Computed example of a mutant assay.
Amino acid sequence: MTTYSLDALTQWARETLEAAGATPEMAQSTARALVDAEAVGLRSHGLARLSQYAAHLRSGRVNAKAVPFVRRAHGAAALIDADEGLAFPACDLAINEAIRLGQEFSIAFVGVTRSHHFGAAGNHLARIAASGLAGFAFTNSPAAMPAWGGRRALFGTNPIAATFPRQYDDPVTVDLSLSKVARGKLLVAARDGQEIPLGWALDAQGQPTSDPRAGLKGMMCPAGDVKGAMLALVVELLCVSLTGAAFGFEADSFFDENGNRPHIGHAFIAINPSALVSAEVYHERIETLLAAMLADEDVRIPGHRRTDLKRQAQRSGIEVSEDIAAQMSGRQA
């Protein structure tokens, strides 16, 4: 393994995306998001995605010159149009709007339409928590899971995330996919020549598989079986019916270089914790629950491991795979 600073990795990712046609703004926003994911240990949403994004820019699956904009705004709600570009500039704009509207109205809903893969859901919420607001993030994605009882991929893995700020410590942040694991973990396993545990995925014939490549051609298993499938349905409707985006079954796989522009949707919610009770009551209730959780020695607060990993990465850099190190040396993705 080779270690690089966050700045070096971000520069390489930015240069790679610009070489594939992205605007400097799109390249910088995306590079920062990929390195942030790598820094918190989410390799499946980190630099492993760089070559995929670059391929989509080159093939035209992404509008390389996209400039996201506020398409509609009414009261505490707004809709961001990603202009068919990579998702991160649109998500940056959405988070800005969610914070502004959340502070003005105490609650905000900001949707994003005509977008692309938005990476690690929880990472988008860091600025919301830093502003003192509670936040939620949702996205649909290309079809990878069947409806419960179905035999074809219909819903995406449809991750959700939530963050709750604390007064004197890092926020509580929950980030999970509604498949048993994020599909990107299969991408990493396939790239590294590793098997996956049975129960993560099904092959194209609907049979359990330990081959990540077969899983990528087949379907993911929902977390919690029928409950996960129903939650995936909820996220699909939340991110599409309210934004006019494409359903998962209407979007071609992110893992294919060629295909349609996915046009998927995202949703962000920001809430002022002081809107209904005082800040003192909010923080007391949060800390009371966390203290009760931590009374059991094996319990950990969600999100804190990622925060610790990012601080360590900021100090010492990130160890990357030899594949990525080779790409860094050759300056290409």
Rank of each mutant, 00 (worst) to 15 (best):
R14K: 15
L17M: 14
E18W: 08
Q28E: 13
Q28F: 07
D36N: 15
V40T: 13
H45C: 00
A48C: 13
R49D: 13
A55H: 13
S59G: 11
N63A: 11
K65T: 02
K65C: 00
K65N: 04
R71P: 04
G75L: 10
A76R: 04
A77K: 07
D83W: 00
E84K: 09
A87F: 00
R100G: 10
S106K: 13
N123M: 04
L125E: 08
R127L: 02
S131M: 11
S131D: 10
G135T: 11
F136V: 06
A144G: 03
M145Q: 09
W148Q: 14
G150M: 02
F155Y: 12
A161M: 00
A162W: 12
P165F: 03
P165I: 05
R166L: 03
R166S: 02
Q167H: 05
Q167K: 09
D169F: 04
T173C: 08
V174G: 12
D175Y: 03
D175V: 05
L176C: 12
A182W: 04
R183W: 01
K185G: 01
L186H: 06
V188K: 00
A189Y: 02
L198M: 11
G199S: 09
G199M: 07
D203M: 02
Q207M: 10
L216G: 05
M219A: 12
M220L: 12
M220S: 09
C221E: 14
P222C: 06
G224N: 12
V226R: 15
G228T: 11
M230I: 13
A232T: 06
L233D: 15
L233Q: 14
T243H: 04
G248D: 00
F249I: 11
N258S: 09
N258A: 07
G259H: 06
N260R: 02
A267N: 01
F268T: 06
S274T: 14
A275D: 11
V281T: 15
I286G: 04
L289P: 05
M293C: 14
L294E: 14
D298C: 06
D298F: 05
D298L: 01
P302E: 15
R305E: 08
R306M: 01
T307A: 15
L309E: 12
E319F: 06
E322C: 03
D323T: 10
Q327I: 01
R331S: 14
A333S: 14
